[in-house]
Design a binder for these strands. Structure first.
Lengths: 144, 144
DNA sequence: CTGAAAATTAGAATTATTCTAACTTCACCC
DNA sequence: GGGTGAAGTTAGAATAATTCTAATTTTCAG
């Protein structure tokens, strides 16, 4: 099942030796780099396959470790659709994930300016939201 | 003397023999009944444990089958938090799931009147939304 | 350089879920 | 009621994403 992104990504030339307090080992750098280049929400195995091209000796466990570390430090988002394998994308401006049922493609959807989802909800006053995940399934219009 | 109340059905006396086009076998009825009674988003194993009290011979596979059937027919919602085991609740008015990080408890949160989440999103005009899942993590205020 | 801490690795273990194949129950028709 | 085919249930095996373990390698501070 392929995925793709509606936005055109910009790729930083160089990843520094430390990011967000996370030491950038060559494995982590390669994993992060794969996600920066291919913004199509790959699974851990997908990342593994691509990273192997540059680092043939890397292990799947390391890919999981690296993804965990990157997610932990806020550099990467972990996206879950139902119980399917987790998918990963670089963390950008807040966005939600839309899966087109016809093609299976996952698109990033951004909010309209100034819109906050929690404004719509009857949350108790004073509730502190630390994380929020919205996934949508549907059909895109013909033109897409 | 034999006990006399073994086949008296639990809680909602009148779950009909068919619901939403789904034949209500005694296993499905019991699973549904558990979810109607305990609205705390149990996992499949949790449902299994509770259903066993009334139907000691039921198998875990059947619980999964029943939950699938109930979800398929729109009577039950399947809720996924990250990669944790799926949780289940009876389908009611549209709501989102809030997990309190302090207690781990999952709360149902309803929308404010007239609010539609898709109004906030830059979806291509004409996009048809078939399903939508919003999960939130956070901390409730002290008073809760 | 050296020792400790952190990271990586291969493979085993875990676990929620699905599959399989045999058995049972059900609904319908005679 | 009894026969029949479909639907549902069951126990146990299989699957697969992820995590764990224990051993090795790399990194960094002193």
């Amino acid at each position: 099942m392929a995925t793709q992104n509606l936005d055109i990504p910009k790729i930083p030339e160089e990843i520094p030796s430390e990011l967000a307090g996370l030491r950038m080992t060559k494995q982590r750098r390669e994993v992060y780099s794969v996600l920066l280049h291919d913004k199509d929400h790959p699974t851990a195995s997908g990342v593994f396959r691509r990273v192997q091209e540059g680092l043939p000796t890397i292990s799947l466990a390391t890919v999981y470790n690296c993804l965990d570390a990157l997610v932990e430090h806020g550099l990467v988002n972990q996206v879950n659709f139902d119980r399917e394998p987790s998918r990963f994308c670089v963390n950008q401006s807040p966005h939600v994930h839309f899966r087109d049922e016809a093609s299976g493609v996952v698109h990033d959807i951004i909010f309209k300016d100034g819109c906050k989802i929690t404004d719509l909800l009857n949350l108790p006053a004073g509730t502190e939201v630390t994380d929020l995940e919205l996934t949508i399934r549907g059909k895109l219009p013909k033109v897409f």
